[in-house]
Design a protein around this nucleic acid. Structure first.
Lengths: 151, 151
DNA sequence: TCGAACATCTTAGCTGCTAAGACAATTCCT
DNA sequence: AGGAATTGTCTTAGCAGCTAAGATGTTCGA
C-alpha cells in the first residue's frame, strides 16, 4: 500500500466508467441479436449463471421485477425456446426454470467472438502479469459485489 | 505471448461475466437512487461523458432510441434538473443538452463510495503491478469498444 | 426565393411493468 | 386429521415509455 497520485486514480476511474457504459451497450446488442429485450436477456443470464434451476419467484427477487412481470418474461423465453417450465416435484406450487442449452448453439458465434477478444487481450501479457491481473479481477468482482448489494 | 491453459481462460471468462452482471445491477440501482429510469440514466451518462454538449438527435443515435423517445428522456431529465435544453445559436433546429453539474452534488456519496472501493482495490497492488493492470484495462476497453461496435 | 433536407416534437398504438388479488399447493396449529 | 394461514405463481387493470409516422420549424442549395 502506497499513496496514489490523483491522476492515476482519475485514469482508473475513467476506465471503469467507460467499461461500464460499453458493458451496457454490449448487453443491449446481444439481447437484440437473440431476439430478446434487455430485461428478458438479464433474466436468462441469471438462470444460466445459477447453480441449479431457479424458481420463478427467485428470478423476481434477483432481477428486482414483480412476480407478474417474471411470468411474462418466462412466457417469452419459453416461447423462444430458451427455457422450459418444470413444476418442482417436491413443492408443486413452484415453477423451476430450466435452461435448454441446445438453443445457444445458434449464438455460439457471439460467445466465440467474445472469447476470442479476451484471448487477444490476455495474449499481451506473460504469466506473471496474468497472475497480477487475475488477482485484480478477483478482488474487483468481490468488492464490486459488496458495493452493489448495499447501494 | 504464450499458450494459455483452458482453465485460466475459463476463470477469466467467469470474472468478465460476473462483472458484467454486477455492472448492470449497479447501473439499475444508481438510476433508482437518482429517481430515474435506467434508460434516462443511460442517456444522462452519455451526456456527461461527451466532450461538449450533445444534441437530442445525437443522443438518439448513441442510445439507440427513437427521436421521439429522446424527447421524453430530455423532458424528464430537465424536469428533474439534471440537464437544460439550449437551442444551438448556429443552427436553431438543434437542441443542445447541457448537463447542470450542481445537481450531482446530492449524489456525491454514491460516487465517493465507488471511488473509495476503487482505491481499496488498487491499494492491494504496488506501482509496478498497477502499471500492468492499467495496461490491461486500457487494452480491454479498446478491444471491447471494437467488439461492441461490430456486434 | 423556393423546394428539399434536416432536427426535434407530437401523437396513436402497442408492449411490458407494477400492484392487487385469484387460485392452487403446502405448512402450521390444535 | 382438518381448517386456517402461508406460500408461489398467474391473472388483470391501469399506467409509463417506446416506436413509427407525420407535423412543425429551420437551414441549405440551386
Amino acid at each position: 500500500m502506497f499513496d496514489m497520485e490523483p491522476e492515476v486514480l482519475e485514469r482508473f476511474t475513467w476506465y471503469m466508467r467507460e467499461h461500464s457504459a460499453l458493458t451496457i451497450m454490449f448487453h443491449t446488442k446481444v439481447a437484440e441479436q437473440m431476439g430478446l429485450s434487455a430485461t428478458d436477456e438479464k433474466c436468462l443470464d441469471l438462470a444460466i449463471r445459477a447453480e441449479g434451476p431457479l424458481t420463478a419467484g427467485r428470478i423476481a427477487e434477483l432481477s428486482g421485477l414483480s412476480t407478474g412481470a417474471v411470468t411474462g418474461v418466462i412466457d417469452r423465453l419459453e416461447r423462444a425456446g430458451y427455457v422450459r417450465r418444470v413444476r418442482d416435484p417436491h413443492d408443486r406450487r413452484k415453477v423451476l426454470v430450466e435452461v435448454t442449452p441446445a438453443e445457444f448453439v445458434k449464438f455460439g458465434h457471439l460467445f466465440e467472438k467474445a472469447q476470442a477478444s479476451l484471448v487477444e487481450v490476455l495474449g499481451h501479457f506473460d504469466s506473471a502479469e496474468l497472475e497480477v491481473i487475475e488477482r485484480y479481477l478477483k478482488l474487483q468482482v468481490e468488492t464490486f459485489r459488496k458495493r452493489v448489494i448495499d447501494t
